[in-house]
Design a protein around this nucleic acid. Structure first.
Lengths: 149, 149
DNA sequence: TGTAAAGTGCAACTATGTTACAGTTTATCC
DNA sequence: GGATAAACTGTAACATAGTTGCACTTTACA
């Protein structure tokens, strides 16, 4: 997921061209920000990055833009323990469902694309399962390294 | 988890006596409500049940009471997709961590005490894991039965 | 039964997300 | 290239979930 700025720009254009809506400044900026981030971001995080880049995105527009990106399958929405939604870009449309890791120290949320929720054996069969999210918590690579010197 | 009202009262007293705080009307009522419920409840649900029972519990007191019950290990707190916390009673102190099922139709959250998050193989070992929550979504037993006649 | 600490109630506040509606921009057609 | 309708954006006002500060009340216990 480490892309050069040019690769990010190219991916943004590709993804937006494929989607059935208009390509606007807000959508480009937000998707660019998501693709550039190593972790999932919430609204607040995205607003901050936008501010750093001297982009001003209206709060409501940001909400709507993120909804739209999720609808288009270009971003995915992650529920978190701190009652806000987190978002991460979906660069390839065939991305598998995967686990998320919430670091209790730095509060970042990582997508662990290689870790999936295991199939369940003893779920009573009267429950009709549609989604299974595996939400891990603990300390992330970076914080762990910082702590252990 | 189906207890008679007398059993519930007895359990409430036992659990509160064991805890290092005071036994108050709010704590008794809330714990009673949680023990009586077949699913996990959020603040709003609890307020409604309390109202039905002609108990009036202040909003803030309810928040604090629930925090306290969780601290004491008498209730557990479940993050949900609709940005509110859900709570369920922990009748036995040695209850295992278990999966939760959120019904997309009736919005209830069920504790599936027999379903656990499977141990993970491919979590990079630099991540220090402390908790693993398995959050299932779909249609619950009741809604499924209603739909299939 | 008096007292200190623990718990409660109220008001005001913060954070996150939503709705309505008028104004602006985009894609498209001529 | 310019006009047009639909799509998108910005503002204000609102809704919901949860928190904080502080005065008041209740509990446990000597």
């Amino acid at each position: 997921m480490t892309m050069t700025p040019e690769e990010i720009n190219r991916t943004v254009s590709q993804l937006l061209d494929q989607a059935p809506g208009r390509s606007t400044r807000a959508r480009e900026s937000v998707l660019n920000i998501l693709l550039s981030a190593p972790t999932a971001l919430n609204h607040h995080n995205i607003e901050e990055v936008a501010k750093q880049r001297d982009l001003s995105i209206d709060r409501v527009t940001l909400y709507r833009t993120l909804d739209w990106l999720v609808e288009q399958g270009v971003a995915h929405r992650i529920a978190s323990v701190n009652r806000s939604w987190y978002f991460s870009a979906v660069a390839q449309p065939d991305m598998e469902p995967h686990a998320h890791f919430h670091c209790k120290k730095c509060q970042q949320i990582y997508c662990l694309e290689d870790v999936q929720a295991a199939p369940m054996h003893n779920l009573p069969k009267e429950y009709q399962l549609e989604e299974a999210d595996l939400c891990l918590q603990g300390q992330c690579v970076t914080c762990n390294r910082d702590a252990n010197g």
